[in-house]
Design a protein around this nucleic acid. Structure first.
Length: 545
DNA sequence: TTAGGGTTAG
């Protein structure tokens, strides 16, 4: 099937859509993300290429390939495509390497159909695709989330006897993990003859992200037993994974282990630790880690500093956060959009909404393009401080600037409508969001269920809740708490307690807020004894601190 | 082919 689709699209019209050669000042080629030295390097590459192109005798084809390979490594895909097109227009016969590079460029630019048409051309010319050619195609499919297609392609090329490498299997395993199919990834991994460190790393990471630290650790033990050496990425993955499940001490244990195995921590290692300590509000220790990394001659980068800035904002140390920002710029580390988002969010969290808006406006002067996250942070902050008109203005502005609202942007606005007694408008917005092909998630549904309850429409809330269950979605602690609160609000205490039991039986354990809602409802109805029972349970579970 | 920072709910 993949072959017929690819043959349908012919190669030439696809290339024709890209300009042959454009002068250097064209914005397509000179994006701000590339430094001047890189620009002049690639300038030089194009000059050389043109020299080759206009030589009286056609130089060996690999000379072109070398330059094209360089441009692809520099991520200058449109240029590489137009240069290959020029070769073809000059009648220079492209080889497998050139065509594989061309395929790679199309994949990176999200033009998969064109990549497949190049692949068809490769086959038609009788070239034998090598492991790199095939890996490029599979990665293109995986990057687009079309992992099943990549697996079909894999089956077909294996049947045809084409060569595949460890890279290809790494790509497929990674593709499966990234769409949440870790189990399938492990199955495929088990069929691979020679398993690499990278494959282990990918699966260990995915298991941690699915909150399966034991399975992740077991896989790490397995690789050690089988004599497959963990590398710096393995250790970073373990350190990150244990931080993710709240076991920062275990993470530090692995830092020591990697040191005793003579694997040097890199900027990722230290940054992961800085971020984890910040999230635990241990700013002093986080700052120490930054000091240790500098002493170890590992240069902190924008992520390291941004994590620390976020940490200071979380503990309301605005001054310190600002100091870190100026320290980082003085060290020549440029802030990213993400850094700005952290600062805007931090200012809002510290009730400095006007300052946040000022910083947002300053982004334009500093050549920073606010993205969906920037707008979502601001819209939510404005909604929560009652500046709703301004929030809607930004919602319009973001679309005008080609930053599409996502599920989070919509959820914030739906929440705002619900809390301001506009339930009908909230439902309308939910409809609009699904029309725009943005699917509501559990946050959205919880906001809506809560909105229904607050508006006295408990029946509707219960219907939505039941619908979630019927459709096989697992309600989480927030969903249950919102429903329990809704039932309590209507004085339906027995129903609330029944739902509470169901929730606990499903393995979803109450937190302080759930307990508080139930206990206060019981007290309100003078059920003192029962309230005290819940209070004791709460103390027993060490939820009161 | 793998690893790190930012936004939504009770």
């Amino acid at each position: 099937m993949w072959l017929s689709r690819s043959v349908r699209v012919s190669l030439l019209p696809s290339i024709a859509k890209f300009p042959p050669f454009l002068p250097m000042h064209n914005s397509l080629f000179c994006s701000h993300s590339h430094s001047h030295s890189q620009t002049s390097l690639h300038d030089e590459a194009i000059l050389q290429f043109n020299r080759l192109l206009h030589k009286r005798h056609v130089p060996p084809i690999f000379e072109f390939g070398k330059i094209l390979g360089f441009l692809v490594r520099m991520k200058r895909y449109p240029i590489a495509i137009s240069l290959i097109k020029q070769m073809e227009l000059k009648g220079i016969h492209t080889d497998l390497v050139n065509l594989s590079l061309l395929m790679n460029c199309f994949c990176r630019l999200d033009k998969l159909a064109f990549a497949f048409s190049v692949f068809a051309k490769i086959l038609k010319r009788g070239y034998h695709p090598n492991a790199i050619t095939l890996n490029t195609l599979m990665r293109g499919l995986c990057d687009k989330g079309e992992v099943k297609e990549a697996l079909n392609l894999h089956d077909k090329v294996v049947a045809l006897g084409f060569p595949l490498s460890q890279f290809t299997y790494g790509t497929l395993i990674n593709g499966l993990c990234k769409i949440g199919e870790t189990e399938a990834a492990i199955k495929l991994f088990r069929t691979v003859q020679r398993r690499s460190t990278v494959m282990y790393n990918i699966i260990i990471d995915s298991l941690f992200k699915e909150k399966q630290p034991k399975e992740a650790y077991d896989l790490y033990s397995e690789m050690v037993i089988k004599g497959i050496s963990p590398d710096v990425v393995t250790y970073n993955t373990l350190i990150y994974g244990f931080c993710l499940v709240g076991q920062v001490e275990v993470a530090f244990g692995f830092l020591n282990e990697m040191l005793s195995n003579s694997i040097r921590p890199n900027v990722y290692t230290y940054t992961i630790l800085i971020d984890a300590l910040c999230k635990e509000r241990k700013l002093g220790e986080a700052k120490n880690v930054l000091g240790v990394m500098v002493k170890a001659h590992v240069k902190p980068n924008v992520v390291s500093f941004s994590a620390l800035i976020d940490g200071y904002y979380v503990v309301n140390k605005v001054k310190n956060a600002k100091q870190v920002f100026s320290a980082m710029t003085h060290m020549g580390v440029s802030p990213s959009v993400c850094t700005y988002n952290i600062m805007i969010n931090g200012l809002i969290r510290n009730k400095r909404v006007d300052e946040a808006i000022n910083l947002f406006r300053k982004m334009h002067n500093r050549n920073m393009v606010p993205n969906t996250v920037t707008y979502s942070i601001l819209i939510d902050g404005l909604c929560k401080t009652g500046r709703i008109c301004h929030a809607w203005d930004l919602f319009d502005e973001m679309h005008g600037r080609n930053q599409q609202a996502n599920v989070i942007t919509y959820s914030s606005l739906i929440d705002c409508l619900c809390k301001n007694h506009h339930l009908d408008k909230a439902i309308e917005l939910l409809k609009k969001m699904t029309e725009n092909e943005i699917q509501p998630n559990m946050y959205t549904m919880n906001i809506l269920i809560d909105g229904m309850c607050r508006a006295g429409r408990l029946k509707n809330a219960q219907e939505i809740f039941q619908d979630l269950l019927n459709k096989g979605h697992n309600p989480n602690l927030h969903t249950y708490t919102v429903m329990i609160n809704g039932l309590c609000r209507e004085g339906l205490l027995d129903e609330a307690l029944t739902l509470w039991s169901k929730m606990e039986e499903s393995g979803c354990l109450s937190d302080v807020i759930t307990f508080e809602i139930i206990i206060s409802a019981l007290f309100k109805k003078d059920k003192i004894e029962k309230a005290e029972k819940f209070l004791h349970e709460m103390i027993y579970r060490e939820l009161l601190k």
